[in-house]
Write a protein that binds this DNA or RNA. Structure first.
Lengths: 110, 110
DNA sequence: TCTATTAATCGTAACATTGCGATTAATAAA
DNA sequence: TTTATTAATCGCAATGTTACGATTAATAGA
């Protein structure tokens, strides 16, 4: 079908999946890493930096913005993007809780 | 097109995206959480636990297995699954490096 | 051997994602 | 006002994902 049956999962599980999904494309990973590296607003040069067409980058930026992980503000004809630090921290807590689940090694097992 | 242009990204970026992608569905998040909670091999009852059809669960398990995050061994007519702890730890390091990127608050910015 | 049980695989329908050319909207500069 | 610049949006083709009924394969138990 192509669409997940979100109603059978908890809000937390759906939230983790939503965040993970947005990291599930190397272009978005690359955009985020670049924004961290530059450590400032980036006005436009993401297209040159990443190497995908302008509409494609714009679409990836939109997804990141809609999840709240980046913010962009208009500056003349260009738009400046940077990491939304508060939301990034919140997202990180959710993801860390998932990744840091404890594994008490079970001997009578696989 | 539906397929990412992986050749324009680093191995690390593609790896992060691959791990994130597999977490990008609540059923797989749920399966992993259950395996952690039970903390043992789970023989078959994932279908009852999650609530999706058997072929669907089997497909999700296959993806988790192919990425190496779980392992399953045959036990009679059933198959027992559990977390692949070494690989989980490796994956965690990769993801943590990405999530923990430093944000030096930039004042002359957004 | 026959039958039940369990899980993988096949096939397919419905929907989502990715990428980009073309266009549009908004502002700046001339 | 006209023209350039920048980024969003539209529209679409190609491909991927999700879900599940039906089938198959493998083994256990009668």
């Amino acid at each position: 079908m192509g669409l997940a049956k979100t109603e059978m999962f908890t809000d937390q599980q759906n939230e983790i999946a939503l965040f993970a999904k947005v990291f599930g494309h190397p272009a978005r990973v690359s955009i985020l890493q670049y924004l961290f590296k530059i450590n400032a607003c980036v006005c436009g040069d993401l297209v040159n930096e990443i190497g995908l067409a302008q509409p494609t980058i714009s679409q990836h930026l939109k997804e990141l913005r809609h999840l709240g992980l980046i913010k962009g503000n208009v500056e003349g004809t260009s738009v400046c993007y940077c990491i939304h630090t508060e939301n990034w921290t919140k997202m990180k807590e959710t993801m860390l809780a998932f990744l840091n689940q404890d594994i008490a090694t079970n001997e009578n097992c696989c």
